[in-house]
């Protein structure tokens, strides 16, 4: 079995409950292929964020398994999961993704400080880290070099989200997880942002899991999965 045949994400009989509470997730099976761009649709409170926490290895499943890139997360210790996440998964959140006291450039380069693997990947391109960051930002429509030294507060919401994508993609992690990244954007900015995000993921061959409650975005993706359909816990 060659590398590309291993699914990027494989979930089987996954169950999770917050301590002392009733279960929020019970998923029989979910697979995301390499390079696939998946739209995971779910209303707020449907366990989306919990599922992302489990995929990121921040939360531990009560039962079942999650493999990321063929690596079963439950076989890793907490610190190993943190290291695995740092090297293999980029995250983009709803809003306030950036550290307010770092410049745009330092925000983009931040994951490299925690992952030697992503550092090495940047080095293998022959570009400096700064050049790589600039390249990514330019591809996301932020070509203005003066942006690099600005702080996030000086940027618009849409620009901030694009910086967050550049940060998630630097060092080419195989998986990008985006949690409602467009909900703080207005309609125009939203479609422009989505175009750029999808294009960059395709260009880098990154597997994208895009989570949103907004069904109107679904047609842009390779596949749509509704969390309500695969989650056997009935939300009250």
């Amino acid at each position: 079995m060659n590398d590309s045949a291993i699914p990027a994400i494989r979930v089987e009989n996954l169950r999770f409950a917050w301590p002392g509470q009733s279960p929020v997730l019970d998923i029989a099976a979910l697979q995301v292929h390499r390079g696939e761009r998946l739209f995971l649709q779910g209303a707020s409170g449907s366990g989306k964020s919990t599922l992302l926490g489990l995929m990121g290895g921040v939360l531990e499943a009560d039962a079942g398994r999650i493999d990321i890139l063929g690596q079963p997360l439950q076989q890793l210790g907490r610190a190993q999961r943190d290291r695995f996440r740092a090297s293999h998964i980029g995250f983009v959140f709803q809003m306030f993704n950036l550290l307010p006291y770092l410049s745009v450039l330092d925000n983009v380069l931040l994951p490299l400080r925690f992952s030697p693997q992503r550092c090495a990947q940047v080095a293998s391109t022959g570009m400096t880290e700064t050049a790589q960051a600039q390249h990514l930002l330019a591809a996301l429509g932020l070509a203005d070099a003066s942006l690099l030294s600005r702080t996030p507060a000086q940027l618009s919401q849409g620009q901030q989200q694009r910086v967050a994508v550049a940060r998630a993609l630097i060092g080419c992690p195989p998986v990008l997880i985006a949690d409602e990244p467009t909900s703080a954007l207005d309609t125009d900015a939203r479609s422009a942002f989505l175009q750029l995000l999808l294009h960059e993921c395709s260009a880098a061959g990154t597997t994208l899991v895009f989570v949103s409650h907004d069904r109107s975005l679904a047609p842009l993706f390779d596949r749509v999965v509704s969390l309500a359909e695969i989650n056997r816990v009935v939300s009250s």
């Binding site: 907490r78 943190d82 290291r83 740092a86 090297s87 995250f91 550290l99």
Partner: peptide, 12 residues
């Protein structure tokens, strides 16, 4: 802030 640092790979 902590969650951001965490998401880019910082351990607890």
């Amino acid at each position: 802030e902590m969650a951001i640092v965490r998401s880019v790979g910082a351990r607890p």
